[in-house]
Nucleic acid binder design. Structure first.
Length: 109
DNA sequence: TGGTTGACGTGGT
DNA sequence: GACCACGCCAACC
């Protein structure tokens, strides 16, 4: 059923799954790649439903490199631990050297 | 059917 | 440089 063009959400999931190991991206970057950069909030909303999907939502942060969505994860610091497990340094919910680990789908895809 | 929401982003103060 | 206010736009109730 051509899941790529089905829902905006599925498209977001597809992009998030393509995020390389040890890299992160922002909601706006994903939305921008989908041609709906004005709908960055929708990307975050999609993550909220990504529970049933195999989507590494922990690799998606806001433009500031802040783990804003960590509160929605199961554990308190699960999101941070997952990122640290990939070699990303996080201090006070903020990704250190954010530009170095930032992955822009618009430039990589 | 319509109004509120929200894991955001940008711009202005 | 930090804080505040507005805008967007699809999903949810």
């Amino acid at each position: 059923m051509t899941p790529e063009t089905h829902n905006f959400f599925d498209r977001v999931y597809d992009v998030v799954r393509q995020i390389p190991f040890g890299k992160v991206t922002s909601y706006g970057a994903i939305a921008n790649y989908l041609g709906a950069k004005r709908s960055a909030r929708m990307v975050g909303y999609a993550m909220n439903v990504s529970h049933d999907k195999d989507v590494p939502a922990h690799r998606v942060v806001n433009r500031k490199g802040l783990l804003t969505g960590k509160h929605h994860f199961e554990g308190t610091h699960l999101m941070q631990q997952l990122l640290e497990n990939e070699g990303i340094s996080i201090i006070d919910h903020q990704i250190q050297n954010f530009e170095a680990v930032f992955w822009d789908p618009s430039e990589s895809l």
